[in-house]
Design a protein around this nucleic acid. Sequence first.
RNA 1: UGGGGAGUCGCCAAGUUGGUUAAGGCUCAGGGUUUUGAUCCCUGCAUGCGAAGGUUCGAAUCCUUCCUCCUCAGCCA
Length: 588
Amino acid sequence: MSKEKAPLPPGSNFIRGIIERDLTANKYAEKQWAGSPGNAKHHQTAPVDPAKIRTRFPPEPNGYLHIGHAKSIFLNFGLAQDYHGICHLRFDDTNPEKESQEYVNSITEMVQWLGFNWENASENNLYFASNYFDEMYQAAELLIQNDYAYVDSQTADEMRENRGTLTEPGKDSPFRTRTVEENLTLFREMRDGKHPDGRHILRAKINMASPNFNLRDPAIYRIRRAHHHHTGDKWCIYPMYTFAHPIEDALERITHSLCTLEFEDQRPFYDWLMKKLVETGMLSQPVPKQTEFARLNLTYVVLSKRKLIQLVEEKHVSGWDDPRLPTLAGARRRGYTPAGFKLFTDRIGVSKADSWIEYLIFEDCMREVLNLDAERRIAVLDPIKLVIDNYEDGHSEDCFAPNHPLKEELGKRTVQLSKELWIEREDFMEEPAPKYFRLFPGNMVRLRYGYVVECTGCEKDADGNVTVVHCNYLPDTKSGTDGANSVKVKGNIHWVSAAHAYEAEVRLYDRLFKEAHPGEGDRDFLQDINPNSVQTITVQLESSLQSVNPGDCFQFERHGYFVADRIDSVKGKPVFNRTVTLRDAWQK
RNA sequence: UGGGGAGUCGCCAAGUUGGUUAAGGCUCAGGGUUUUGAUCCCUGCAUGCGAAGGUUCGAAUCCUUCCUCCUCAGCCA
């Protein structure tokens, strides 16, 4: 009927393309899965894997997760969900010197916070690379036995010298021709602690003249006497990422191993290893395939581990969960939500092109979800007194404010109106700017959910600063009454009754960096830090805010979204963090 | 200057076995609704797909050459 093209599937991208092609080709139709990771023999008699695809999120537990990881988390877990697959959470803990349980804990907590889990009725897909050290060791011996690996005894410096350069091939190590027996003996001695750290190293035997450095006999096992947070002191040799990661994927029967672009050059080795281990019978087809995508870059934000550590250690921020940091721990404290992250990752897509996402896209995603979720409350952030001169002294009355304009079912709450109110300083101008339609002498505005008032003037101190604004109210114009619309006004300002409001602390956060690309060129990124990235103020809040729980999010009307800080709030005295402002066409 | 990648509207990003007017989102501009200058709604926004040639009835999609950017020489991941 329609001449229109069929709508494209939402979020179409090259990775989905690959998965869909693999699925229609029935590539995994006979892939077996024994319910737990293992080698070919382990899966040999198992039933066909009920998971159509398997992906994995493989963080190294050596730091805190940040927004960039969120992209990967939503990609891997999201793809698994969409294609009836399963996503594993796997800690890539092959370097004990940098890793610790503390990081493991924070990472699992954040992945769960984003809404993902790795357990279902029959499986718990939380894995550790260190659980596969036995298999990795066996794989290394298999390689040696087939003359695909050898023990090199050059020093690190010698290895570097002999690796060649971009334009010159490397030179074979003098130890490259050791016999299988010699290599096996030496490697076992390495395992048994007979050699000091760094004395020998196991290398894959591929091609020292390859134009790809990763194929110039890459190191795959090194001696390191280090206590491992999981395996303790069982091992004094540890596998390198290059070697370990493909094996981890294969043992877990991962179908699509997604990683960032910098691992692209590693793929030939990944495939080489798979081929050799299938050849030796340790693994069986189908083996996992690595696919690379571009990592996230966000303007006004740094995501490099090194820079984040520096910001924390040099105390430019309060800690790993500082609300100004792009860490997930910081984001949660800031009031950014999992739904917002989901929207964000959907919106930016995934491709192989290096790109910089504008920070406002991220903020906008948060606004979009918060607009739907957050109840409205009233806060006067920069208070100035407004006195309704014709209102009865000492009297007060109920006004009814909807908790959410888009969700009537959330009901209304009462707020008290009285003669003396707090309003925003910026809602009054003695000399109004062009197109300003708030309070100025002679102008009428509505006190939101209350009456229309007419401004009559103001008082000023000796320096000319406005101290009190005066007005009269129009008694028949109360919101919710028949006369509410008898007077049409353009301005609508919020307020709290001075007698009923309470004083509180609010933190106004702004971007941590003032430059779109911190540290661009030769600049030190620390020089680009925004000196006004946080401002702590004392405000007047409606009383209902006093009893909220840490972590609760609200829209403070006409200001933005705020969250009760999960750390610094105390019972009956929440501290609020500004998550993001409302859009403001007037300020432009 | 060896290898591996990428270049489609200000920012992302579909589309690449060649086939009519190059999706969509965000930004932006203009208009409407509105008791948040918010939200929401409507309209507009690439004769052009890094550049130049070529093949073809027809090219973002194929070929050639060139340009720009990213990435690789850890016993890190």
